[in-house]
Design a protein around this nucleic acid. Structure first.
Length: 499
RNA sequence: GGUCCUUUGGCCGAGUGGCUAGGCACAGCUCUGCAAAAGCUUCUACAGCGGUUCGAAUCCGCUAGGGACCUCCA
């Protein structure tokens, strides 16, 4: 069954065919690194990580480009206003690249904890100023942009006369032209619908580059067009991002790239839906974000506990990427338990071994065996169907009781064929680990381990008090074999560390 | 105001017109020294009203609620 993806541009599912056989070019809008990533940001990166992993599984060589937006109107809360006064020494002032570095590092840390595979290219906007300027010049040369006071604007009205501006986001151009909203700097534009390709920088603006039009900085949309064109070509396969980027960001990207490269840039537009909290979109402007660091530490009034990145990944996979996903501590707790049960069953499955089983032997359950094969074969079918990860998980949960029953002998070990068991092991591994990118929750930062260690310490203390050195030594020696060092301290206290 | 989307059992969440998705919680039972884990069983919902159809959670209309975008936003 071929892969089908929902194309936001056509508003329907389409069979996926790459432009270059065997290769896929995919661009995903990355973070603006002027602040800390929150739960809402996690969704696209997990979603498109699955897309990347699945395409790779399908045999494609994927060039996955995900940008870092590190240029623009940058400020850090509480610092910007002060810096505008600008009488401080250099080292006291906000250094934009310092800010960008800090949040880029934090973002990368979070991505690794989610077990997201790094994109093959992660370009920065500031590293592609030249490409952006070149692109703007081409657009001006073609007559679709104009310069005013050192800024450059895209002429949407002219573009719309011959192109379908608004198709991706379902806008009607006439309505856009009539928008009554009053915004700063709008008077320079010929038309309200026009958008900036390059902005002249006011004296206090902290990020600025020299351009043919004076000192300034690039408009928000041009970076993606420039970098996607550079690394993926004038036309590429998949462009992903959050639904909230459809307009104006992606709409503008289409317009710029189309004028510059003389063809529509993207074959398949994919948009993930929002994560909501109490039914409302999680977003900075709504003041309802939960940062990833808060989620991992549990340090937030709405959280009853800390949540492991794998729990969050699993939580995201339990819903379809085009549906909103409502966050609550309760929902995450449910996901945590569910994930643990599923993963335990998977670990159990790996230990099972019924090598001699045949489909004609004593105790063989043909119906069960067939059902399992059906469930397993549906894995790929479901992901093929626009990445229906929740259905795959549902099938896995159908098999969890079977796995556990086989282990406990509640089902005869001869009930399923050896080949079926092997297929189960293979499919679970491929889908759970390789495609879904899930992994075991473990490590020394685990509260459970700390509890276990305290328990052992208590037992050892008691044993020592009773001069039961056989027991106390056993505990210490066996832990040492596991790489855990137990240390006696003055006053009878004990501490431990992992070597 | 404009455009579009959405409304599923206590909660989360799949659902291509026809057979109980799944998870979590709850309850009962089995197992167990106790517990946990595990297993089994129970809980059959589709906002309301009307229509199309042999048959609708699924299609159409109206009403009500919620949301997204139109400005930075994943």
């Amino acid at each position: 069954m071929p892969l089908q993806v929902y194309n936001s541009y056509s508003r329907k599912k389409e069979v996926f065919e790459s432009i270059t056989p065997g290769h896929v070019g995919m661009y995903v809008c990355g973070p603006t690194v002027s602040g800390e990533s929150h739960l809402g940001h996690a969704r696209p990166y997990v979603t498109f990580d699955i897309v990347y992993r699945f395409l790779t599984y399908k045999g494609y060589k994927v060039r996955y480009v995900r940008n870092i937006t590190d240029a623009g109107h940058f400020e850090e809360e509480g610092r910007e206003a002060e810096d505008k006064v600008s009488k401080k020494a250099l080292l006291e002032k906000l250094e934009p690249m310092e800010l960008v570095q800090k949040y880029t590092n934090l973002y990368h840390w979070a991505m690794r904890r989610f077990n997201n595979i790094d994109p093959t290219i992660e370009p920065t906007a500031t590293g592609h100023i030249v490409e952006q300027i070149n692109m703007i010049q081409k657009i001006i040369a073609d007559g679709y942009a104009y310069v005013v006071n050192g800024s450059v604007y895209f002429d949407v009205k002219k573009y719309a006369a011959t192109h379908d501006y608004g198709k991706l986001s379902g806008r009607v151009i006439d309505e856009l032209l009539e928008t009554t909203r009053e915004l700063e700097g709008q008077e320079e534009k010929r038309d309200r619908a026009d958008f900036a390709l390059w902005k002249s920088a006011a004296p206090e603006h902290i990020m600025r580059w020299t351009s043919p039009w004076g000192e300034g900085f690039p408009g928000w949309h041009i970076e993606c067009s420039a970098m996607a064109t550079k690394y993926l070509g004038a036309e590429f396969d998949i462009h992903g991002g959050g639904m909230d980027l459809q307009f104006p960001h992606h709409e503008s990207e289409i317009a710029q790239s189309t004028i510059c490269n003389h063809k529509a840039p993207v074959r398949y537009w994919m948009h993930n839906n929002m994560i909501t909290i109490n039914g409302k979109k999680m977003g900075k402007s709504y003041n309802n974000v939960i940062k990833l660091t808060e989620l991992f530490s549990g340090d937030h009034p709405l959280l009853t506990q800390a949540f492991h990145p794998m729990t969050i990944r699993f939580f995201i996979l339990q819903s379809h990427y085009r549906s909103t996903l409502d966050f609550s501590s309760e929902a995450l707790t449910a996901s945590e338990k569910a994930f643990k049960r599923l993963w335990d069953a998977y670990e159990t499955l790996k230990q099972l071994n019924f090598a001699g089983n045949t489909s004609s032997g004593e105790g063989f359950d043909a119906e069960l065996d067939a059902k399992i094969n059906t469930w397993l074969n549906e894995f790929e079918e479901f992901v093929d169907d626009d990445f229906s990860t929740p259905k795959v998980l549902a099938n896995m949960f159908e098999m969890a009781p079977i796995i556990n029953s086989l282990k406990d002998g509640l089902l005869p070990s001869t009930a399923i064929a050896a080949a079926t068991l092997q297929l189960m092991k293979d499919k679970f591994k491929v889908f759970l680990e390789d495609i879904f990118g899930l992994q075991a929750i473990s490590g020394a930062d685990n509260e459970a381990l700390k509890g276990v260690m305290q328990l052992l310490i208590d037992i050892r203390k008691e044993a020592k008090t009773k001069k039961d050195f056989a027991t106390s030594d056993k505990i210490r020696n066996q832990l040492a074999e596991l790489g855990i060092l137990l240390k006696d301290e003055k006053g009878g206290e004990m501490s431990w560390s992992i070597e």
